[in-house]
């Protein structure tokens, strides 16, 4: 067996984003079938689905972002970049973009920080390791809307323990009505839901660090925290960078359900993110062109993030 890229061999070493490799050229199989038509038959289902449900709508999003559509379906007019100008120029859009940025930074920071902390501790313990691990990853499987619903209960005006706790300190917490309170609840729920994902990857990254490296680090540096900072953390950097992009994407898009559940259809004076606005303007406001322009802006953000990730992972450091 000469193939060095065996996944079971590579996986133990370090979690990595395989999506990085299409950019790199990999050697093709030495042995391949030479049938000109058969591969097309195998590809056909996937290509069909991708073309109908990915390319067609994506192209439509881009096209309709340049048009002003009549909400009652009586044709549309070409307006060039007006939809973009309207979106980017509106005070509401800027306010929501600002909140989205803050939300993304906080959710990413806290869920990665907690995930790393828990993983470092779980990596150290021997006794009870698998129980801790099971408990910490199980929440991964909970859907964002369910997390949002549970958050609504914990922050409920009558029964919510968080509201009671706040009242104890003399603060009248009103999630769903007060902007800051809702933002706090949303961020907490979104972090809670995402910690397990970071935990899984950090733990798997830590366990991939060879024992020899750890032993060498122990000899070089007696102080546990300094050792972690100077020897272990750099080895986790590729994992952390991968997670950074994933978490940003999560905060931008996957939290839609948490937000939708927690604002209870009253986005007016509640914090929402850009994806929510795309949905709200398109489906509730019937502003198809404006919603499409906002979609395209978000597409560009995702593309930039993904490209940064590809670039980085291409020249990441190899070890182990």
């Amino acid at each position: 067996m000469t193939d060095a890229t065996h996944p079971t061999a590579a996986s133990g070493a370090r979690p990595r984003r395989r999506a990085a490799s299409p950019a790199r050229s990999e050697p093709a199989k030495r042995a391949q079938f030479d049938r000109p038509l058969l591969p097309w038959a195998f590809l056909a289902p996937q290509l069909l689905v991708v073309c109908i449900f990915f390319y067609w709508p994506s192209v439509q999003a881009i096209t309709s972002s340049f048009y002003l559509e009549d909400p009652f379906g009586f044709g549309s007019t070409f307006v060039g970049l007006d939809n973009y100008k309207d979106a980017l120029g509106s005070a509401e859009y800027q306010r929501i973009a600002g909140f989205t940025a803050l939300f993304t930074v906080l959710v990413t920071g806290f869920s990665m920080g907690l995930g790393l902390l828990f993983a470092v501790k779980a990596d150290k313990v021997i006794r009870g390791r698998s129980s801790y691990r099971t408990a910490l990853i199980s929440v991964y499987a909970i859907a964002p809307p369910v997390a949002g619903l549970m958050g609504m209960m914990l922050f409920d005006q009558h029964i919510g323990p968080f509201v009671k706790l706040a009242a104890w300190f003399g603060y009248d917490m009103k999630v769903g009505i007060n902007y800051n309170d809702t933002a706090f609840a949303m961020i907490l729920v979104s972090v809670w839901k995402q910690v397990p994902y970071n935990f899984i990857f950090f733990l798997s990254g830590l366990q991939g660090i060879p024992a020899s490296v750890r032993e060498a680090a122990v000899i070089d540096c007696r102080n546990g925290f300094t050792r972690f900072r100077t020897a272990i953390l750099p080895l986790l950097a590729p994992t952390a960078f991968f997670l950074l992009i994933i978490n940003i994407t999560y905060a931008l898009f996957d939290t839609f359900a948490v937000i939708d559940v927690m604002v209870k259809d009253k986005p007016a004076n509640n914090p929402v993110t850009l994806v929510y606005k795309v949905y709200n303007d398109g489906f509730r406001g019937n502003d198809i062109g404006g919603s499409a322009a906002q979609s395209v802006i978000l597409m560009v953000v995702v593309l930039v993030l993904t490209l940064i990730q590809f670039r980085w992972l291409e020249r990441r450091v190899h070890y182990g």
Binding site: P22, S58, V275, V278, Y279, L298, M299, V302
Partner: peptide, 22 residues
């Protein structure tokens, strides 16, 4: 390969409105 793997770049949420129309 690229036609298929480009789909990794854009989540459903950003093209939700036109997807609905389709």
């Amino acid at each position: 390969f690229w036609v298929i793997f480009t789909t990794l770049l854009l989540p459903l949420e950003v093209r939700i409105m036109p997807s609905y129309q389709v």
